[in-house]
């Protein structure tokens, strides 16, 4: 992980900016994924694995957002359909989806996404707070927006996404 100490930028008083919880002046790496055309960034340190298409065993009577369970090298991982969690239209065949495995409260979860992109290093200096026009469901899982050249990257709040006690949509 490369770290550029941009001390001058830091002293320019970014403290007031909400959403800038990341260590100031550090470059943080994110794994980018796409959900319904929107690019999301997951902190690379939270990601255990990136998986290709695999068989998922559905669990009858489980919450809708739970796509099922899968076997990852002998560990049973719960697969979460992120689209469903966000209240979006689910994809047809989940067994063809790629997924990103994250750890939450000591348990592994596989987040099913439309596609997985590359790892980006981001300077927190360019992060913005959630714009007021952001829809409710995205707002609930977003820690902030980062402006890339062509598009916006939404920084995913993984804990919020996996906190099933809080309904999102």
């Amino acid at each position: 992980m490369s770290m550029q100490m941009d001390t001058q930028a830091g002293s320019k008083g970014r403290a007031g900016l909400p959403g800038a919880e990341f260590a100031k002046d550090l470059m943080t790496e994110f794994v980018t994924v796409v959900i319904d055309g929107q690019m999301l960034g997951i902190p690379v340190l939270m990601v255990d694995d990136v998986l290709g298409a695999r068989t998922i065993t559905p669990v009858p009577l489980s919450p809708k957002a739970v796509a099922g369970v899968l076997n990852l090298r002998g560990r049973i991982v719960t697969a979460i359909d992120v689209r469903r969690r966000l209240g979006l239209e689910p994809l047809e065949d989940l067994s063809k989806c790629m997924s990103v495995v994250v750890e939450h409260n000591g348990e592994p979860y596989s987040l099913l996404v439309d596609s997985v992109g590359e790892v980006l290093a981001i300077n927190s200096a360019h992060c913005h707070a959630n714009p007021p026009t952001l829809p409710e469901n995205w707002r609930a899982v977003s820690k902030g927006i980062y402006q890339l050249e062509d598009e916006l990257l939404l920084l995913l709040d993984v804990d919020g996404l996996l906190n099933f006690a809080q309904p999102i949509a």
Partner: peptide
């Protein structure tokens, strides 16, 4: 998994 713990019909899962 904790998410599924409330379901009364399952006592666990296995491979």
């Amino acid at each position: 998994s904790p998410i599924l713990r409330d379901l009364q019909f399952y006592s666990g899962n296995t491979i």
